[in-house]
Design a protein around this nucleic acid. Structure first.
Length: 581
RNA sequence: GCGCUCGUAGCUCAGCUGGAUAGAGCAACGGACUUCUAAUCCGUAGGUCUCAGGUUCGAAUCCUGACGGGCGUACCA
């Protein structure tokens, strides 16, 4: 469906083309009015065109309006101030838009006209250790972006580029060899109770025993040489660790496909060879590196991106390049999006540039989305009381417990089953929501109390708003969704009008959310619609006896639309709604 | 040194492809419950958008420079 802005834009463009040529058209022809006092929508182009047209802005505005026919959708068009053109919407048109949204399973949001194959690289923990809060943002943001793109109609590959290779694995392999020989005979029964402890125990032995340390180093060599028995132990370990990860993914309702770094092992020498042959990689202080323009060291000398170490080993740039080559050339993806911590920005810039030099990708094919740090309430990195790393599992369990307790406290008459459902949804959902309600790029402070607050921009507030629409159905004895496509809208009360406009503006918000990949924009919209619904709820009775049948049905229809928008919107960040909260 | 990034209300944060009087939540203060779930709503107050220049009819937004914080700076990821 065309959004109201787009509908207006098309008409303004038509009128404007009578005054100027097509390549003189400004970018933003129509925008929603910032202050509803002025208008619903406004056009600000007259001021900008004054110089080019050598006319007073007000005159241009008048000429534009003279050529403009919006009588079917606008109640009034007024010129104000220096040359703002203000549009006031016709109620019938607003109703038309809402009715269109009501009967569409996608709320009027169209699929993309150009579906692409898009890879989203996210989560990507290191298998040597248990997942911790450091993996949270990548997992949550990546999943949400994948959901956006899937909803848009793209083919999305959700890839878990797990760290399953490297020197730290030697130690762990040797530990299994010595302490858990059973694992080798019965790999299917092998389970690591606590990865963290396992790592710590291995590390301890490594530090204490010279013999063990040497054996560990040997294990790395064996591993890289592809020695069969060592590979078998490694595999056992990786699978056990991966199982841990997927327990967490299941808790968080996240779908992702694993493909470890080790999958690119065979490609590493090939990639370096490619770079050498193309003349991009050159020898530098015993290593091989690519000198890119614009990278300098302290002495203003060119700085290379190392792709092969002086000892012949490969490093992360090599692995990432191999993955890019594989993804672009073999998997033939149109685009790849990397969701990692913002500190890796420089690294990806370099790797992307090298890929472009090799013509594996074009500018824009590869995108790095860097997120800021998750900090504690005090503004310092989020840690346990004694300064340790917080395990992701522990965080999720605590979130669930806190939400469960809160529900018990506030709605004591609910059933145990309902408490549990709220614990899970509001707990895990709250973690997702508090993360995604902030802009991705900047650091944000995590605060338990804020995450679980019943007011403000939180998951609970939205869940509760949705539950209200369900409660209304129960009370009325009729599902509000039955009104979709059936009831006739009446928008007499200011709160009804405000809410109706907010619902319609989804059609404007969503395209920029998917274009810019900004979950926080979607969530602040959902919060606004929930707020407007609450105001409406308080001002506009629905089931009171004095309410006419028509008004009742119209208001139930509005409630149904709000419910559907919230249900859909939360699903875009991986939260399922509940009938009772 | 160089590069990236941030600086907006007491606090947490939006807004940053330039538009009218800079927004929201929390906290503060004042109101509304024999309720359609008050886990809510209505209202009040709160600002030199770090600072200084510049571009522009118009700057929180773009440019330059300072100041302050965070991060990155060749063989870790």
């Amino acid at each position: 469906m065309q959004s109201i802005t787009d509908t207006l834009k098309a008409k303004v463009e038509l009128a404007l083309l009578k005054l100027i040529s097509e390549d003189e058209l400004p970018d933003q022809l129509v925008v929603p009015s910032q202050n509803p006092k002025f208008a619903d929508y406004q056009c600000n182009v007259a001021m900008g065109l004054a110089r080019a047209l050598k006319k007073a802005p007000r005159q241009i505005a008048e000429d534009l309006v003279a050529n403009l026919d919006v009588s079917d959708i606008c109640e009034s068009v007024e010129i104000a101030g220096p040359g703002f053109i203000n549009f006031k919407l016709k109620e019938d048109f607003l109703k038309e838009v809402l009715n269109g949204m009501a009967v569409d399973s996608r709320l009027g949001l169209e699929k993309t006209a150009n579906p692409e194959k898009i890879l989203v690289d996210f989560s990507s923990p290191n298998l040597a250790k248990e997942m911790h809060v450091g993996h949270l943002r990548s997992t949550i943001i990546g999943d949400s972006i994948a959901r956006f793109l899937e909803f848009e109609g793209h083919e999305v590959l959700r890839m878990n580029h797990v760290g399953d290779w490297g020197t730290q694995f030697g130690m762990l392999i040797q530990y299994i060899r010595e302490e858990m020989p059973d694992a080798l005979n019965n790999p299917e029964n092998f389970k690591i109770a606590s990865l963290e402890e396992f790592y710590r125990a291995s590390k301890k032995k490594f530090d204490e025993s010279e013999e063990f340390a040497n054996a560990s180093r040997k294990a790395v060599v064996d591993l890289q040489a592809g020695e069969e028995k060592t590979l078998a132990v490694w595999k056992v370990f990786c699978e056990a660790s991966m199982q841990h990860c997927h327990e967490i993914y299941e808790l968080m309702d996240i779908n992702i496909e694993d493909r470890g770094e080790s999958a690119y092992n065979d490609l590493l020498p090939v990639v370096v060879d490619d770079l050498k042959k193309a003349g991009h990689a050159v020898q530098t202080q015993g290593a091989w590196g690519v000198f890119l323009e614009g990278y300098k060291n302290e002495d203003d000398e060119p700085l290379p991106t190392i792709v092969q170490k002086s000892d012949g080993g490969y490093i992360y740039a090599t692995t990432d390049l191999a993955a890019i080559k594989y993804r672009m050339l073999e998997q033939k993806v149109d685009r790849a999006i990397y969701v990692t911590d913002a500190r890796q920005k420089g690294h990806f810039e370099q790797v992307f540039k090298i890929s472009e030099l090799m013509e594996w990708s074009k500018p824009g094919d590869l995108q790095h989305i860097g997120f800021g740090m998750m900090l504690g309430k005090d503004g310092k990195p989020f840690k346990t009381r004694d300064g340790g790393t917080i395990k992701l599992k522990d965080l999720l369990v605590e979130a669930e417990e806190r939400a469960y307790k809160l529900a018990k406290e506030l709605s004591p008459d609910f059933t145990e089953e309902e408490f549990k459902a709220i614990g899970k949804t509001a707990g895990h959902g709250g973690v997702k929501y508090s993360d995604l309600s902030h802009s991705i790029g900047t650091d944000y402070k995590f605060d338990w109390d804020k995450m679980l607050a019943t007011d403000g921009n939180t998951a609970i507030y939205l869940l509760m708003t949705y539950a209200r629409t369900r409660g209304l159905s129960r009370k009325a004895g009729v599902d509000v969704n039955d009104m979709l496509g059936k009831a006739k809208l009446i928008l007499d009360d200011p709160q009804e009008q405000k809410l109706a406009k907010k619902i319609a503006s989804l059609l404007d918000i969503w395209p920029s959310v998917t274009r810019e990949l900004t979950p926080n924009l979607l969530l602040s919209y959902l919060f606004e619609i929930a707020k407007d619904f609450s105001s409406f709820w308080n001002a506009c009775p629905i089931l009171k006896p004095e309410i006419t049948q028509e008004t009742k049905e119209s208001r139930m229809l509005l409630a149904a639309l709000v419910g559907r928008v919230i249900e859909w919107g939360l699903s875009m960040i991986g939260i399922k709604v509940l009938d009772k909260v």
